[in-house]
Design a protein around this nucleic acid. Structure first.
Length: 489
RNA sequence: GCCCGCAUCGUCUAGCGGUCAGGACACCACCCUUUCAAGGUGGUAACCGGGGUUCGACUCCCCGUGCGGGUACCA
């Protein structure tokens, strides 16, 4: 086995997204993934790695869900657990031997030590330190054990972990987002690298894998800033060159708290179900902490990939605004071809056939913000609405409504082409003198027909709606409406 | 408690010593209009506070405040 850095394409950027399969991909995760994907650029390689080293929180089904979400967003990867690649395997639980090997190297050079302390002792230690107002850190008791004492413990099969011996001095790096960072190593705990179950912690696995996979830039959330010195210590002890680090700020909810489940649906899969387009979501997420520096605001993923750069990444946290997402989604719905919209509508309208989908797409494209608005908007096409008399007439005199419906039915004999003009002049003929009243009267008349046809006061335009259900059905609905009104007079 | 970071309209942001502090979402008004949208025009709305540095600070420095992150055999 070799621990040489995998760098199959020297000089090119290699970025990774390395989620932990513990649930569902949330906006925050996906933001990191999107930034990594975009900052990989068109020349580099983007890879996915599964960090499944926490066996207690591990959810096996999560992996395929993650990959599905990433693919839906269009974040295509060049190497990953499903497609393999030169640095396979891309799942950490399958790379245990590497971590064990590195851990023993660290032990050999004295950069790490075995620790046999029980969890109870560690808890007591922490509690005491906290009570004394001290930072909570491991007291290195096991580090002071002699070789023979350690040997004895090992021989007895005592439960052990391997801890990093945090070196003296300072750790510093030039963060691509936050700028120069410096920490006093004395303030940093001796991190556990190998847990008692033999699995590595993130801190070891991540360093080993990023090195072996030739990762050039690590993009992660700011919650990792305080542990970066630990990672730097491991790189240094092994004589490995660390990658560039870019710590991006958290995504916040409307209450300015870290975006989480309590904000409703933070899971990306839920946004898909609500009828948001991946284009819109990616567009919005990209602007959380980044902007092109111009007044452009609509970008495709591939445009983002060519335009995005580290130096325009912002260090301040951003609030995820669903109203803005609604707007952007409307923009994107209007931007894609109607045929494309039709096929995306399919999962929201399983009862519609392809020709219907095409008609529906054309008539809703300009008026929706989310795909899930469509079923309500076109419900009339799949079920007879049977509106009640008062819903039909509204504020209109029933006799006038009646007459108007009759007129509409007659006009339909000639198709829907001249329907609106005919209706308008018919309505105008019975309108009162004053201009305001006339306007209202015409509107009310039109509404009678709309309700008769669709059962709704808000619907897509009438001619298209009628074309969707067919003239015969429309005429039947008009006849029914007239009968309903007649019965109630 | 200790360590670290952040701070421009309600929100996303532009700004990188001299601007009427720009754009977008949302909101309001008007126009267009068969409803709802879309579109058009206009409007309300911001540099957290205090000290410096400077001829001049939203921009640079310090302090305060607020918000956030970390402080695990979780990532």
């Amino acid at each position: 086995m070799s621990l040489v850095a995998g760098d199959p394409l020297p000089g090119l950027r290699r970025l990774r997204f390395a989620p932990s399969p513990t649930g569902q991909l949330h906006i925050g995760n996906v933001r990191t993934a999107l930034l990594s994907y975009c900052l990989t650029g068109t020349e580099g390689r983007f890879l996915i790695r599964i960090e499944d080293t926490d066996r207690e929180r591990y959810i096996p089904e999560a992996v395929s869900g993650y990959l599905g979400t990433l693919a839906w967003l269009g974040l295509h990867w060049d190497e990953g657990p499903d497609i393999g690649g030169p640095c396979a395997p891309y799942t950490e639980s399958e790379r245990l031997e590497y971590y064990a090997e590195v851990a023993s190297q660290l032990l050999d050079v004295g950069a790490a030590y075995r620790c046999f302390c029980s969890k109870e002792r560690l808890e007591e230690l922490r509690a005491a330190q906290k009570a004394a107002g001290q930072p909570t850190r491991y007291d290195r008791r096991c580090w002071r054990m002699t070789a023979s004492e350690v040997e004895k413990e090992v021989d007895q099969g005592a439960e052990q972990v391997i801890r990093l011996l945090m070196p003296e001095g300072k750790s510093s790096w030039k963060d691509l987002v936050l700028g120069p960072q410096e920490f006093q190593n004395a303030e940093i705990d001796d991190q556990v690298l190998i847990k008692s179950d033999g699995f590595p912690t993130y801190h070891l696995a991540q360093v080993v894998d990023d090195h072996m996979m030739g990762i050039t830039h690590v993009i992660r959330g700011v919650e990792w800033v305080p542990s970066t010195p630990k990672h730097l210590a491991v790189y240094s002890a092994l004589g490995w060159a660390p990658p560039h680090f870019a710590h991006v700020p958290l995504v916040l909810g409307a209450d300015h708290k870290r975006l989480a489940k309590r904000h409703g649906s933070g899971a990306v899969a839920d946004y898909r179900a609500m009828g948001y387009l991946p284009e819109a979501l990616a567009n919005l997420i990209a602007f959380l902490g980044w902007s092109p520096g111009t007044e452009e605001e609509i970008f495709t993923l591939s445009e983002l990939r060519t335009r995005m750069s580290f130096d325009r990444l912002q260090a301040s946290p951003a609030v995820f605004d669903q109203q803005r997402l609604d707007h952007l989604n409307g923009v994107w719905i209007r931007r894609i071809p109607a045929a494309d919209l039709a096929s995306r509508l399919r999962e929201f309208l399983p009862e519609a056939d392809d020709p219907q989908l095409a008609q529906i797409a054309a008539m809703v494209q300009e008026r929706i913000h989310r795909l899930d608005e469509v079923p309500d908007l076109v419900r009339f096409a799949f079920a007879n609405p049977h509106p009640k008399s008062e819903e039909l007439t509204g504020k209109l005199d029933p006799h006038i409504a009646q007459e108007f419906l009759e007129r509409a039915s007659a006009l339909l004999d000639k198709g829907t082409g001249y329907l609106m003009e005919g209706l308008k002049s018919a309505a105008a003929a019975t309108a009162p003198e004053d201009p305001q009243g006339a306007k209202r009267h015409v509107r009310e008349c039109m509404q009678v027909v709309r309700v008769a046809i669709t059962g709704q006061r808000v619907s897509p335009p009438l001619p298209e709606s009628i074309d969707l259900i067919g003239i015969d059905v429309a005429k039947a609905r008009l006849a029914e409406a007239m009968a309903v009104i007649a019965a109630s007079v």
